[in-house]
Design a protein around this nucleic acid. Structure first.
Length: 473
RNA sequence: GGCCUCGUGGCGGAGUGGUUACGCAGAGGAUUGCAAAUCCUUGCAUCCCAGUUCGAUUCUGGGCGAGGCCUCCA
């Protein structure tokens, strides 16, 4: 079994070989907590959760360390704090914004079937680590102070730009880098900047100030994963400048040739064929999808969202559409149907008994090829179709590994599509219809069927004479 | 302007130098009081132009098209 991963650093798929198989280490850039997370934010959360699960499967759950940070110092947060809590002292207002948003993010991630990372450090708890790295960079001649800022000097690093494949000359040619007089090179970026009285700040050798955007990830990854670790992930847009600058800071501070061996980036998401943006009014938050009917006229189960997200390879662009969600929902209903009508007996409190069921080898093989989730789903379709006891057990094991099992549903044998249906009434009507059918009163039987249909309930007359129902879709 | 992705049937979406998976939708059949569900069968595709090759959807070059980054951004 070999795991192969696409490495942005080399632009090729490589065989993965951990530095220490007893501690496989992965860092993923987490959210900046100033607002509700949107569905685009959910992609790396889900994708790298799948990788986390796969690594735990391959190396053992206790041999994988996954760090996903929470950025809680940022100028957008300050702005939001001033807007939403104008009457609170700044620090309290900021804490109110970040706490609320971070809690929401974590509950969103959980609803999407994601495991809790090993560590979820906050930037504000790691200021000293950032100050230490910045001091080292200054001492080694990679950083300088100017106009109240500490800046990283990109020209002090021979191979700056390696990850994004851009050269310093190209950047200077591009007219979009603002030329600021105090910078030695226009591409130099901020490590520390001074704060005014109405901005959050921490004491430092350079005065009361706050860190630049990139330094926090260098500090937190070093603290939890060491100077060199295995995998660093995030969205495609972070390649430049964020990851490039993280690499520059960490490598120059530590005198190392790499920061992480493998750099992975997920592709972007569009909504109904358009770029998601607030101005187009197609901004979809995770909470909207889970809890409201704003998108596609219904609320969506977390596993449906998760499956829809994984239907497309993580590096490909994905178009987030109602049709795709409906297709995922149907697939999940079908697979769950196979599970609960099988020999496995799921009850409210026996989940532990089934957690030992393993994923199918072909499924693991598919995931091991750069997380080819869709190829994995093809395996699951085969397993579901076969209906052999062993295959059904593999189906459960595979879905469970992927975080696509909703055990509450399995034990209730009813996929939670919509919740506003009166279940007792449905059962009564079905019994009335069965009685009518026994006396061949087709008119009454069809009338009841129409009534149920109007309620959004689809009924199924099974071969064994029973009638079951589900939410119409 | 620089850099980077991608272009497969009606839709979603893999793999492959040599009869193009799989799912959804469609069609036909079985079943059904009629339906639905289910089961069986089945039609449909590799953007364009060159090149390499016995043979390319796959490799190379060019074109066209879509998207991303270069500024906060998953």
């Amino acid at each position: 079994m070999t795991l192969r991963l696409y490495n942005t650093l080399t632009r090729t798929k490589e065989e993965f070989s951990p530095i220490d198989p007893n501690n496989v280490r992965m860092y993923v850039c987490g959210p900046t907590v100033y607002d509700f997370a949107h569905i685009g934010n959910a992609r790396p959360v889900i994708v790298f959760d799948v990788l986390f699960r796969l690594l735990r499967h391959l190396y053992g759950a206790e041999h994988v360390t996954y760090v996903r940070n929470i950025t809680d110092v940022d100028d957008k947060i300050n702005a939001r704090a001033l807007r939403d809590f104008p009457n609170l002292p700044l620090n309290e207002a900021i804490r109110a914004v970040t706490q609320k948003t971070a809690d929401q993010f974590q509950s969103d991630a959980k609803a999407l079937g994601c495991l809790t990372p090993t560590e979820e450090p906050r930037a504000t708890d790691n200021i000293q680590g950032m100050i230490d790295i910045i001091s080292t960079l200054i001492n080694k001649g990679h950083a300088y102070t100017a106009a109240g800022e500490v800046l990283f000097s990109v020209s002090s690093m021979a191979d700056y730009g390696k990850l994004s494949g851009r050269k310093l000359e190209d950047q200077q040619a591009g007219a979009r880098v603002a030329v600021e007089a105090h910078k030695k090179n226009p591409a130099d970026f901020v490590l520390w900047k001074l704060s005014s009285a109405d901005e959050p700040g921490w004491e430092s050798p350079w005065g009361r100030g706050r860190p630049g955007w990139h330094i926090e990830c260098s500090a937190m990854s070093k603290r939890y994963l060491g100077e060199i670790f295995d995998i660093h992930g995030g969205g495609l847009d972070l390649i430049f400048p964020h990851h490039e600058n993280e690499i520059a800071q960490s490598r120059c501070a530590h005198g190392s040739s790499v920061m992480a061996n493998v750099w992975m980036h997920n592709g972007f998401l569009q909504v109904e064929g358009q770029k998601m943006s607030k101005s187009l009014g197609n901004f979809v938050t995770i909470a909207d999808l889970l809890e409201t009917e704003k998108f596609g006229g219904q609320n969506w189960n977390g596993e449906v969202l998760r499956l829809a997200m994984l239907m497309t390879h993580y590096r490909q662009p994905i178009d987030w559409t109602k049709d795709a969600l409906l297709a995922s929902q149907k697939t999940l209903v079908d697979w769950n149907g196979e599970l609960y009508s099988s020999h496995l007996k799921f009850t409210k409190d026996n989940q532990e008994t089934y957690n030992s069921l393993t994923a199918h080898e072909d499924f693991i093989d598919a995931l091991s090829d750069d997380i080819n989730t869709h190829a994995g789903f093809t395996v699951l379709h085969k397993l579901a179709k076969s209906r052999q006891k062993m295959d059904i057990e593999y189906l459960f094991g595979s879905l469970n590994l992927m975080g696509l099992i909703d055990y509450q549903f399995l034990s209730a044998r009813q996929f939670p599509l919509k919740t506003n249906i009166n279940r007792e009434l449905v059962v009564d009507l079905i019994n009335d219809r069965l009685a009518a059918r026994h006396t061949k009163n087709w008119k009454e039987s069809d009338r009841i069927r129409d009534e149920l249909d109007a309620m959004g309930v689809a009924i199924k007359d099974n071969k064994d004479g029973t009638t079951t129902w589900e939410v119409k879709r």
